[in-house]
């Protein structure tokens, strides 16, 4: 589904990603861990097409297509979803209008008719129940005045609405209390299917108690320095990142 080969990316001439290769297949959950500044969020940003970063080398194939050639909206329409680390507040754009526009633009891209008002409302209701989000949140402007936890739940709600092939959760757990964390994790687990995949980017092991990854990768200084099963996360939790730093210090 996703094939990253030797990916290099920079911002303002500073190289952040220095040769990342990664394969994600349908049905898999990958965790990418690493200390602050290792390039985890940059990887998410580059994959979703944030123009602040410049890809200097490497390739990314998504469902057989060249991902890096696509505009951000086309990546989303191909089934890529990013749960933002810092969801943006957009006063004046209602959640309902935002989601309806997004869904219908995605449907149009896939050659489908737009959802009718009643179909759309039904979908909203279903997905709200699925991710246990307060119905009040969808009556408001996008993320406006939402607490940190509400913003993250709202990301998972959007993910449920858009039903992506590949979801990237960028530090979705940071700053969450245990209840919100559970809601987020439950949402991800419920949406899990044999034909979709998830990349969980996190600093802490905590979220991985709830979302069981098939693979754990450690990112350090823009490279994946270690890959293993879920036991690696526990090891990191126990020993911290210092041993990684020592081992791979240049």
């Amino acid at each position: 589904m996703l094939k990253i080969r030797n990916l290099h990316a920079k911002i303002d001439d500073k190289e952040i990603l220095r040769g990342i290769s990664l394969d994600v297949k349908p049905g898999e959950i990958h965790a990418i861990m690493g200390p602050n500044g290792s390039g985890k969020s940059t990887l998410a940003a580059v994959l979703t097409g944030n123009e602040a970063f410049e890809v200097s080398e490497g390739s990314v194939e998504f469902s057989g297509k060249d991902l890096l050639e696509m505009a951000p909206e086309d990546r989303a329409r191909e089934g890529l979803f990013l749960s933002f680390q810092y969801p943006v507040e957009i006063p004046g754009v209602s959640m309902t209008n935002f989601m309806r526009t997004a869904i219908n633009e995605q449907r149009k891209y896939r050659g489908l008719e737009p959802l009718s008002a009643s179909e759309f409302l039904k979908l909203m209701r279903d997905r709200k129940n699925l991710v246990e989000i307060d119905s009040d949140l969808t009556n408001r402007s996008v993320n406006e005045g939402f607490s940190g936890g509400e913003k993250k739940k709202n990301e998972i709600f959007q993910m449920a609405m858009l039903d992506p092939k590949l979801a990237i959760l960028d530090e979705t757990d940071s700053g969450l209390d245990i209840d919100a964390l559970r809601v987020v994790a439950n949402g991800v687990n419920k949406l899990r299917r044999a034909d979709n995949a998830t990349i969980v980017i996190t600093h802490y092991q905590r979220l991985l108690d709830y979302i069981q990854p098939d693979y754990v990768h450690v990112l350090y200084k823009g490279r994946i320095v270690k890959s293993a099963g879920k036991e690696l996360a526990l090891e990191l939790e126990e020993k911290g990142y210092d041993w990684i730093k020592k081992e791979f210090e240049e």
């Binding site: 097409g49 909206e73 943006v88 869904i103 996008v142 858009l162």
Partner: peptide
């Protein structure tokens, strides 16, 4: 905000209209 909207599959033109309207 523009990137956030586009990352959900909304075209740049449509996203601009949403933001201007907002």
């Amino acid at each position: 905000a523009l990137f956030y909207l586009r990352a959900r599959g909304i075209s740049k033109d449509e996203a601009l209209i949403l933001l201007m309207y907002a």
